[in-house]
């Protein structure tokens, strides 16, 4: 028999199965916690930190995507402290993001932009150097613009097309970190993958996109931003 865990989620008593993460329990209970690096079928990375929540008794906020629920845990997913932190995290991502939403191909389906809107991120408070990388548009199946990459690593962990691993890896470190192909080469015509569409669909920003031919119908659903 499965072990049940009882906890308090936003003031409500809920029960969960042992081993579930806070995020899983929250989603099961209809609570939406924003995430950028989390992917349902993969082990969590805990990189974007957007899913942080307040757990009573904890010194810091905790990443809900990787923290298992425990008996008696008291969790707040949308307290003022959490919302303020999430807002700053998004602002930090935008601090080095190009200001090109207006002409970005992904603008209307961009998860980063949707989350920023949900958190009511206004004019940028923070600034950081922008990364200038060339747009990689030689390949007929994928366009990479790493200046828009937010280093969520979804493409890295989800890709299995290189036989023994991913076609992409994180290289360098700190603010210079970059998701690279090969030894930091451009994804050229020769790069082949049976499923480029897979990683393109997972990319939460405009970093990966599909080359669109003029007149072609777009498959993705457009984003509706409130306000």
């Amino acid at each position: 028999m499965e072990n049940k865990v009882n906890l308090t989620l936003n003031g409500r008593a809920v029960s969960a199965r042992q081993g579930m993460t806070i995020l899983e329990v929250a989603r099961e209970n209809g609570i939406d916690i924003p995430t950028l690096c989390y992917l349902e079928d993969f082990s969590p990375m805990g990189a974007c930190r957007l899913c942080v929540v307040e757990v009573e008794g904890s010194r810091t906020l905790v990443g809900s995507c990787h923290t298992p629920v425990t008996e008696g845990m008291v969790v707040h997913t949308h307290s003022p402290k959490v919302l303020a932190a999430r807002k700053i995290l998004v602002e930090l991502l935008l601090a080095s993001h190009p200001d090109s939403c207006l002409v970005c191909d992904k603008a209307n389906i961009c998860e980063l932009r949707r989350i920023a809107a949900d958190l009511e991120v206004g004019l940028p408070r923070f600034h950081a150097r922008k990364h200038y990388y060339p747009v990689e548009d030689e390949n007929p199946h994928i366009i990479r613009d790493m200046s828009k990459c937010i280093l969520c690593r979804r493409c890295v962990i989800a890709c299995k097309s290189a036989g023994n691993g991913s076609m992409f890896s994180v290289a360098y470190r700190g603010f210079e970190s970059k998701v690279v192909f090969g030894c930091d080469q451009l994804v050229d015509e020769a790069a082949v993958c049976p499923d480029f569409d897979g990683c393109i669909a997972l990319c939460p920003s405009g970093a990966l996109r599909k080359p669109v031919k003029i007149g072609e119908e777009r498959a993705e659903k457009a984003l509706i931003i409130k306000g």
Binding site: L50, L89, L92, S96, A128, L151, Y172, F175, S177
Partner: peptide, 19 residues
């Protein structure tokens, strides 16, 4: 310079602070 770069607050935050 020494941040590993994995998580947003450290990677982006230290750079913003430097600036």
């Amino acid at each position: 310079e020494e941040s590993c770069g994995k998580c947003t607050p450290c990677r982006q935050g230290t750079e913003v602070m430097v600036e």
